[in-house]
Computed example of a mutant assay.
Amino acid sequence: MKDYRYILFDLDGTITDSIDGITNSIIYALKKYDIEIVDRNELQKFIGPPLVSSFKNFCGFSEEDANEALRYFREYYSTKGIFESSVYKGIEELLTRLKSENKTLIVATSKPEAYARRILEDLEMDKYFSYIAGSKFDGTRIEKSDVIAYAMKSCGITDLSLVLMVGDRKQDIMGAKKTGIDSVGVLFGYGDRKELENAGATYIVETVGDLQDLLVAK
């Protein structure tokens, strides 16, 4: 594998297991429309894509209703859901190893940047990252390619051959391709192998240990 200097990480499903906080927030929002969720596993598909798109695609909401549902989602998420997540086992050790090899680590998430910073600070994980890039609350910079481009510009990165994106959903892989960088799809998050292969991941790994074997110098 190439010697990448800059490694961008998605947040949900890559650094953190955040399914409880996100699904609890979605359930809270959907109750406002008298939609009851019997199996919360159905909501895993919401994790990764921008939420307005998910409310439209999976619930048939209009643009207006989808934006209103997002506001309801944030009512719960901003006070409770944001803290209902944990770091995947082995991730902190991986980040420590990468930092010791002088890699520049960056978060690139479609989650609002303010939320991402708050989550990583609460989990005491922000210390590993040179920059935390995310979307804006006004609905802009939500596409993963826009977040990646913003992260690279903010960090003064110009040589795309030195950059690698790590994520668990097709949006991470497609965003990397659109911005001209390589990618790693991880299977310990919320996507599956077929999704990541179809999106064109440069590499695919199953576990955090496999990711470390791929990224850390032997």
Rank of each mutant, 00 (worst) to 15 (best):
I142G: 00
K194G: 14
F188V: 10
L196P: 15
R40Y: 11
D172M: 09
L196I: 12
L187M: 14
V184E: 04
Y72R: 06
A114F: 10
G21D: 02
Y115R: 03
K80N: 09
E36C: 09
M152R: 07
M174R: 14
V205I: 08
I26D: 08
F9S: 02
F46R: 08
V163R: 03
L43D: 06
V208S: 13
C155A: 09
K218G: 10
L215G: 03
Y88A: 11
R71F: 07
A199T: 01
T140Q: 13
L8I: 10
T104R: 14
E195T: 12
T202N: 06
D39G: 12
S18D: 05
F55G: 11
S100N: 13
D159F: 02
L43N: 04
F129C: 10
T207N: 11
E121Y: 12
G81C: 04
F73L: 02
S62L: 06
D138T: 02
Y190W: 07
T96S: 11
G185R: 00
K89G: 11
T140K: 14
L120R: 12
D126L: 07
S78V: 01
R74D: 08
S130G: 14
D122H: 15
Y203Q: 03
Y28I: 06
G209I: 00
V147K: 02
G48C: 06
Q171P: 02
A151M: 07
G200L: 05
I106P: 00
T158C: 05
Y203C: 02
F55A: 10
L215D: 07
L8D: 02
D146M: 10
I22Q: 04
K194V: 15
D213V: 09
R71Q: 08
F83L: 07
E75A: 06
L94Q: 11
C59F: 00
G156A: 07
N41A: 08
Q44N: 06
D146L: 10
C59I: 04
L43K: 04
L164V: 03
T14H: 09
R169E: 12
Y33V: 04
S85N: 15
Y4W: 04
I35M: 09
V216D: 01
L123N: 09
N198R: 14
Y72T: 03
N41T: 11
R74G: 05
I91N: 07
V205G: 05
G48S: 05
Y77N: 10
L94G: 08
E143A: 12
K136Q: 11
I148A: 05
F61K: 14
L30H: 02
A114K: 13
C155I: 06
V166S: 07
S25L: 00
T16I: 03
D138G: 04
D172G: 09
R169A: 00
I19W: 05
I181P: 00
I19G: 01
K170N: 13
E64N: 13
